[in-house]
Structures are given as C-alpha cells and as structure tokens.
C-alpha cells in the first residue's frame, strides 16, 4: 500500500504494487505526471488518460482518473474520438516508444498535423520491455536488442524533430533524472492548447541496460546526469540521440497554431453562416 503520498488521490493504490521492474523509470514518470496533473489547475475528473500496450501502456491502469488501456499503437485515435465527443476533457496519451512510433507512428503524425488538442507523453526506453527487449524505432544504431543481437542496423527516429515537423505546438524532452523539469514540462503540455508532446527518456535496466552494459537503474540515471545537456529552444534537427548516450534536454518548441476544433469551427461558421452553431461536443 502507498500511504500518505501527497498525490495518492490520483493513484489507484488498490492496484499497488505495480508490475514494473526495480530500476525502471516508469514509476518516476508517473510520479512526475500526477504532480503535473495535480498542479495544472484542472479538476482530476476532467483529465482522461489513454494508454496503448506495453510497459508504459500499463500507466493508465495505475492512475485514479478516467483511464483507458486501449490496443497496441492506437491510443492516439482513441483519444481523438474521446476528445471530439467531449472537448471539455483534457486528454493525455501516455505510452511507449514502440507503441507510439512503430505500430502507432502514422496516428502520431496525423494527430500532430491536425493539431488535435491532446498531450502525448512518450516514455522512451529504447526497447519493447513487455515482450523481452526487442529493437524499436528509437533504439540507437549499434545498440543490442533481442531481435538485433549483432547491434541495431537501422537509424532511429529523432522524436522531437518528428513531432516538430509534423506540427506539434509544444515539444520537450527530459529524462527521469530531471524530475522537476519533467513535471513542469508535463504541466505546460497539459495546459497548452493543441497537440503537445513530451518525450521522457527512461531506463529499462532489465532488458535494454543489461544487454548494452549500462549497469542497473541507478547507473543509468547517473548516465543521464553525466551525458545530458539542457538546451531550451534547440533546433530539433540537432537533438537526435545515438549510441554515445548523449541526450539534449529542454523545451524545444512552444508556438501557437489553431487547434483542430478552432480551425473546424472557424471554417464551418464561415461557410454555413449564422445557422452554424460552434461544435463543442456531442452533448
């Protein structure tokens, strides 16, 4: 049981202990998230979390919010429907690098392009943890994975650059070492209107760290501390990660662009005239 935790009201304490390995960074990201949610100014009843499948996919089930554990790669289109049915909800998609950028990559770029009003949090641990440590679209070239036993032969995505190019209005990256900055970034992302994206680099000592001789969870956190630099406003083209372990952190993008619904209502009001009532949800 989790007792006397200041954010326990936002956690499903009846589901503890969680399934994550010791040294995993997911618990840290959840701790940061609930603090961001508690401090964002919205009542918890208005915040809904949607996860996909995988270790990060389990986050939804530990949050005492309306929460949906959906299918692999599809939390973003589920969140799209949810948001459009009830735009008063703040919809947060919380999932992993494999879920959001391999099987779900297409949905990510289209939601960003539409500037769908939602926050996407990607816990990037460079691997598929739940299935045993396979290579993902963010695994650095050369890193070992169970399905890349001789080292990854492909180049990874640079997630902030992808989000930026596809149209996200807020893009930040932090590691689980940067708990204050990560909390602040998630809070800003929740408060931002439009498609906001936060990448959280997180250790998977069991499956990624072990194969790549990075030590245990604490060693990996030490690595984040030593190898990360903060460059707010950095050009996202320059923040890609590689096998060296160097990580550029910061808030890279914070700009204004009409959200999907703003653009939709403006266009329809102009075309349909005074008979058109702004769409504000089905209810």
């Amino acid at each position: 049981m989790v007792n006397n935790n200041p954010v326990s009201d936002l956690l499903r304490t009846d589901r503890m202990p969680h399934i994550w390995c010791s040294g995993c960074g997911l618990g840290t990201t959840v701790n940061c998230f609930v603090r961001a949610a508690a401090g964002c100014g919205l009542p918890p009843d208005q915040i809904t979390v949607v996860s996909g499948i995988g270790c990060t996919g389990r986050v939804a089930g530990y949050l005492k919010l309306d929460s949906f554990h959906t299918t692999h790669g599809r939390p973003i289109p589920f969140a799209t429907g949810l948001k459009l049915a009830n735009p008063r909800l703040k919809v947060v998609v919380y999932s992993g690098d494999g879920d959001l950028f391999a099987i779900g990559g297409n949905h990510f770029i289209h939601a960003a392009r539409r500037n769908m009003d939602m926050t996407v949090i990607c816990v990037n641990n460079f691997t598929y943890g739940m299935t045993g440590g396979q290579v993902t679209p963010t695994t650095p070239t050369g890193a070992i994975a169970s399905t890349a036993p001789y080292g990854n032969t492909e180049d990874p995505f640079n997630l902030p650059y992808l989000a930026d190019s596809a149209g996200a209005v807020y893009v930040a990256r932090w590691t689980t070492f940067h708990v204050r900055q990560a909390t602040k970034a998630m809070k800003e992302a929740i408060q931002k209107k439009g498609f906001s994206f936060v990448e959280l680099v997180s250790p998977c000592p069991t499956l990624y760290g072990r194969r790549n001789r990075m030590g245990d969870g604490l060693d990996m956190m030490e690595g984040y501390k030593e190898n990360s630099t903060i460059r707010n406003g950095a050009d996202t083209r320059d923040v890609g990660m590689d096998i060296s372990g160097k990580i550029v952190c910061g808030k890279f993008v914070d700009r204004e662009r009409p959200s999907f619904l703003e653009q939709y209502n403006t266009r329809l009001a102009a075309r349909l005239g005074p008979s058109y009532k702004n769409y504000e949800g089905v209810l």
Partner: peptide, 24 residues
C-alpha cells in the same frame, strides 16, 4: 451538432469511434 472526421486509415477510424462512445 455532429462530428465527422476522416481518419488516416480504417484502424484509426474503428477505434476513434470507441473513444467517442466513451466520451458520450
């Protein structure tokens, strides 16, 4: 007062409707 969205594929369409249902 309804909303139609053309999604990026049928996979997205078939789960977007379910998000909408859970939204009411």
């Amino acid at each position: 007062g309804g909303m139609f969205i053309q999604m990026e594929d049928e996979i997205a369409s078939s789960i977007a409707i379910q998000g909408a249902v859970w939204g009411g």
